[in-house]
Nucleic acid binder design. Structure first.
Length: 488
RNA sequence: CGGAGCGUGGCGCAGCCCGGUAGCGCACGUGCAUGGGGUGCACGGGGUCGCAGGUUCAAAUCCUGUCGCUCCGACCA
């Protein structure tokens, strides 16, 4: 059935790697941990980008671009932030190479930099250094800037899309007059992330707060969206940070209030990355390969003509013409596969690539005045009358979009368990799934559980009900209800 | 840093022990047939055998060195 794909129930990780490869999404770069995003994969990113870019522009944000290179000294200014990123920074130490008779080229020792430069792992520091110059008065606030960029984090263990040394993302960096305003911004963005994930990527997410040990280094509070992948592990799909006045203090960014007082600026930052593509693959994929939500699919409908000879070829082209015009009317992204591969081969190939709808057109359909549609999400084949074509396609795309979401949501709900005893906790974590339970709020408890089960607190969900709960490990009264899971 | 293993067409591998014109599968190209679930047949293109030295009439194969990668351990989380 799915020749060449590992069984996703037995070897999920092998399945993932093969799907990424066979669907033509990405390839490995020559430097360890780097990734080439191929056109088919990049189109997914382009759609995600367009959608989210529209969302933030509608809410008053603007795009800008800050440099890739950051003075090393900047990173040292915010203590916690250094802690978090120091161990995975690429550092530029020299500026030149020179020819070498034996080794080809060598680093020119004469070009050593006085102050070394780091490649951004995130841009808070350089942005706040700039905001210092730009902000004097409350009249300069708020600043609502976003940038689409690449960042580098030198990772040891990498996987395409999920964790690579260089990745693409958007990072929003906002500056506000009040704590309240910054908090509102952080939450507003989280809501946009939720919409992006659920309404467009068809990935259901839990929204909540990160614990102290899981939050962004340098933030007061980190909010997140957490999703369940097909192997029941958790994937952090987006984070929104309330940075408080941490960076304002580190970079001495103050403003004059209406009352002519000097105050530190309040900040937020937030990001989603190409990791979302990994999330789409791991959430919706099945034994046959990818299943893409129509809203982001590079190709929403693929046409596979079934032809025996040249006469038929022309006949089918004629038959297809008005149909393609209709698809164009309703702005469906269409691809026709006239390649010389056999129909069966094409079916499988486009299924691996996750195209939501396949349309087969052959001699029989011309006789019947129909088209054959196959849904990628359910595998169902539909024979529809040519006259009802347009309406059917629109409905079908919507059905597939919501169908994928519902399937994922059912799967997640079925594998999220509320428990009160540690034995059940361990069992679920071992077998796979999310656990909702009480936690005493102690970092040491969290650490012990991680050590014993490899599960971490994914978030304190917004809809937590901690009343009457006790801590899953210590039995102390619970400070929070939390979601535990093994994470990517 | 310690241990082990691997470098041979694009990919995956065999050949090495026991030296004698470099092979298989997939992929690729051409042609014919086929075409509603990975189609078949025929022909064809493509490799400094990681690199450098050595032994030999002759090295992918034996010896020495070297570079690179992978896994395990260590370190880190």
């Amino acid at each position: 059935m799915s020749k060449g794909l590992p069984d996703l129930n037995k070897d999920f990780s092998g399945w993932y790697t093969q799907v990424v490869n066979k669907a033509g999404l990405a390839d490995y770069g020559p430097v360890k941990g780097t990734m080439v995003i191929k056109p088919y994969g990049f189109q997914l990113w382009e759609h995600i980008k367009e959608i989210f870019d529209g969302m933030i522009k509608n809410t008053g944000h603007v795009n800008a671009y800050f440099p890739l290179f950051i003075p090393k000294s900047y990173l040292a200014k915010e203590a916690e932030h250094v802690e978090g990123f120091a161990k995975e920074c690429a550092v530029v130490t020299h500026t030149r190479l020179k020819a070498d008779s034996e080794k080809g080229v060598v680093v020119d020792p004469d070009s050593k930099l006085e102050e070394e430069i780091i490649v951004r792992p995130t841009s808070e520091t350089i942005i706040w250094a700039m905001y210092k110059k730009w902000i004097q008065s409350y009249r300069d606030l708020p600043i609502l800037i976003n940038q689409w960029a690449n960042v580098v984090r030198w990772e040891m263990r990498t996987r395409l899309f999920l964790r690579t040394s260089e990745f693409l993302w958007q990072e929003g960096h906002t500056a506000h007059e009040t704590a309240k305003e910054a908090e509102q911004e952080t939450l507003d963005i989280l809501e946009l992330y939720r919409q992006l994930a659920e309404d467009y990527l068809a990935i259901p997410v839990y929204t909540g707060i990160k614990t102290e040990s899981e939050k962004f280094a340098g933030a007061d509070t980190t909010y997140c969206i957490e999703a369940m992948m097909g192997d029941k592990r958790a994937l952090q799909a987006g984070t929104s940070h309330n940075l408080g006045q941490n960076f304002a203090k580190a970079f001495d960014v103050t403003f004059q209030t209406k009352e002519n007082k000097e105050e530190y600026v309040w900040a937020t930052s937030w990001g989603v990355s190409t990791r979302l593509i990994g999330a789409v693959i791991l959430t919706h994929g099945d034994a046959k390969g990818l299943r893409l939500p129509p809203k982001i699919a590079p190709i929403q409908l693929v046409i596979i003509p079934i032809v025996k000879n040249d006469d038929q070829r022309q006949e089918i082209k004629n038959y297809m013409e008005p149909l393609i015009a209709q698809l164009k009317d309703i702005e469906i992204r269409v691809h026709q596969d006239w390649s010389s591969n056999s129909p069966g081969f094409k079916f499988n190939e486009w299924e691996i690539k996750g195209v939501p709808v396949r349309m087969e057109i052959g001699p029989r359909d011309i006789v019947e005045n129909q088209v054959v549609l196959a849904r990628r999400d359910t595998g169902e084949k539909l024979f529809i009358d040519k006259e009802d074509f347009k309406e059917n396609i629109i409905k079908l795309m919507n059905d597939i979009q919501s169908g994928l979401f519902e399937q994922a949501q059912n799967f997640r709900n079925k594998n999220t368990h509320s428990v009160t005893d540690y034995k059940s906790f361990q069992k679920i974590i071992k077998e796979g799934g999310f656990v909702r339970c009480g936690w005493d709020g102690e970092q040491s408890t969290e650490a012990k559980i991680k050590e014993q089960t490899a599960a971490t607190i994914r978030c304190i969900p917004f809809d937590e009900k901690q009343e009457g709960l006790t801590c899953i490990l210590t039995g102390e009264p619970a400070k929070h209800e939390v979601i535990f899971a093994k994470a990517y």
